[in-house]
Amino acid sequence: MKPIEDLTFPEDLLYAQDHEWIRMENGSAVIGISDYAQDQLGDIVYVELPSVGQTFAKGEAFGTVESVKAVSELYMPIGGEVSAVNESLGDSPEKVNQDPYQDGWMIQITPQDPSEKDALMAKDAYLEMLKGLS
C-alpha cells in the first residue's frame, strides 16, 4: 500500500467517510471510490453495481467491490435514483485501480436532495481524515 502522499485526490470532488467520491455535473452526480480505497483493496476483481432506475438513500449500500480476498460494500454518499452504471467494469474491473476518478467511475445518479452533499468533505478535510486513520 502506498503512503498517502503518493495518492491523488482531485480538487473538484467531494469525498465521503466510506471513501466514495462524487462529482456534481449539471444536476446529476457521478460516484466512484477514492484512490485511497482502491489502494487499500488491492487488485479489484469484481464490481457489483445496481440497475438503472433503482433508488437508494444516503448511506445505503448500492453495490460491492471485491479483491481476491476481501469484499467491501459501496455506500451512497448522497441519496438518489441511478441513471447510469459503468457497464465496462464488468469486463475490466481493473479500471477502478488504474483510474478511479475517470474510467473507473461506478454509477451516475439523480440526487433526491442535492443539499445532502453539504455534509461531504472537500479534498483537504478528506486528507486530514486519512491521516488520522494511518
Binding site: 469484481y46 471485491e66 479483491s67 481476491v68 480476498k69 476481501a70 469484499v71
Partner: peptide, 12 residues
Amino acid sequence: LSTREQHIRREK
C-alpha cells in the same frame, strides 16, 4: 471466487 465463501463474506 472465494469472496462468496463464509471465511471472507461471513454472514453474507
